Simulated assay, not measured.
Amino acid sequence: MSPQITPIVDTAQDLELAERILTPDGARIPNPQLDRFVADVDPAQLRALHRDMVVLRRIDTEGVALQRQGQLGLWAPCQGQEATQIGTARALAPQDFVFPSYRETGVIYARGAQPGDYVRMWRGEEGAGHDPAALRVAPLQIIIGAQSLHAVGYAVGIRHEGADEVAVTYFGDGATSQGDVNEAMIFAASYQAPVVFVCQNNHWAISEPVALQSQFPIAGRAPGFGIPSLRVDGNDVLACMAAMRWALDHARSGKGPAYIEAVTYRMGPHTTADDPTKYRPAEELDAWRDRDPIARLETYLRGIGELDDEHLAQTQAEADAVAKEMRAACLGMVTRPPLAVFDGVYAEPHAGLERQRDEYAAYLATFEGEV
């Protein structure tokens, strides 16, 4: 007779099963598995991580406001997920290449995004809001989970070339139910590709709770593919940084793929086209407010005497300045000429593309003179 197995309901209480370094009330606790990966992080670096999270939240708030004011077609909020995105992204090496979903505003911020990069795509001006080569971040991916396959393909190329790079892909808990993510893990394990999978388990795949699609921790799936995994408290920026350093070290040293499940929470809507009050209980949201990643780090830094009101005010002023630049960049954007849609599709001229350009130009000419 098989042993009785009790499923885990992945709610706020389930966080006790995730590795952490900072508790929700801001206390530092020993973690034999993770401590060595952040032993070098000093108070100055912690304040920098805090600043990053504050700036990211302000960018996110501005993005929502711009969409509500009709300046953006859509926005995918990341409030509540700042520690996961900043902690993991700040662990990356400059040469690593990221394959994000549509919610990784914090990742492109950490990789050096400029004010207009956050809004250009959501305003409909470009297919990619940033220069992928400059940031080493692929365009934000709308198709759920597709970026995981792109990352593995790139990582196989890294392995063949012997390059000192790691491919990193981000996706949500909902994407783990997609075939793309599972197929990507099969290929990654089969070819020992240097790729890190980062699942941001924010508890809701639009209106579907994670407990409905995964009765056990998502990180438990990876070992079934032969991929080692870590499950961390995604609202603990130190734990997220440590987990990513572990995963990158594993992948970069030729041991193949690694997997991180960061247990966090989406405080806002899935996108600005969504109304979470229709499906999400208010008391659940309140419970996660007590686990706010920014407040957690603030409490810890204040407790060790490394944060004061003057620094907080300066940080908020910096965040407001970034948001102001982002708004100005958005409102000042000039729509490209229609034929510019063909620019950059291929690295070199292509006869088929030129034919399409000519056909589209002829089509546009039929509207000349119309008001």
Rank of each mutant, 00 (worst) to 15 (best):
A262N: 01
A188E: 12
I158Q: 10
I260W: 06
F216V: 09
L238A: 06
A258C: 08
M244W: 00
P281T: 06
P217Y: 03
I227G: 11
A184H: 12
R252F: 08
G268F: 03
P276S: 05
N235W: 00
L238I: 04
P269Q: 09
C240M: 06
I186T: 15
V181M: 12
W246T: 11
S253A: 15
V232G: 04
R245Q: 12
A189S: 15
I143S: 14
P269W: 07
M244K: 03
A273N: 08
M267Q: 11
A163V: 00
L285E: 15
D233F: 07
T277V: 09
G162Y: 06
P194D: 14
G268L: 10
Q200D: 13
D233Y: 03
R221C: 02
P281V: 09
A175L: 01
G226P: 07
L212G: 04
V198K: 04
D164C: 09
A247Q: 02
T176M: 11
V237L: 09
F171C: 03
D249Y: 03
E261R: 06
E283Y: 02
P217E: 10
D180F: 07
F225M: 09
G226E: 08
D274C: 06
A239C: 07
D233S: 06
H203A: 14
G157H: 07
I144P: 00
N202Y: 05
Y170Q: 05
P217R: 13
H250M: 03
G162K: 03
G226I: 06
K278Y: 00
T169Q: 06
A155Y: 07
W204V: 09
F216S: 14
D275E: 10
A258N: 05
Q213R: 05
N182S: 10
A251M: 04
A175C: 04
W204G: 11
T169P: 02
A282W: 01
A273G: 12
R221V: 07
M267N: 07
S253W: 02
E284I: 05
R252L: 07
P223T: 01
D173I: 09
G234Y: 00
I218L: 08
G224E: 00
R252M: 08
Y259E: 09
S190K: 13
H160R: 15
P281C: 02
I144C: 04
G172H: 01
V152F: 06
P209K: 08
D233R: 01
G256Y: 04
D274L: 04
H250L: 03
M185C: 12
L238C: 01
P217V: 13
L149F: 13
C240S: 03
G220S: 14
T272A: 02
G234Q: 00
A146R: 14
A193D: 03
A219W: 03
A258G: 13
G145S: 12
V263R: 04
A239N: 05
W204H: 11
G254F: 01
E165M: 15
G226D: 07
I206A: 11
L212M: 09
H270E: 08
I260F: 10
S190Q: 15
Q192D: 14
A155C: 12
L230C: 14
T169H: 05
T264L: 00
G234I: 04
A242V: 11
D249H: 13
N202L: 05
E261F: 03
L230A: 14
E161W: 10
A211F: 11
I227H: 08
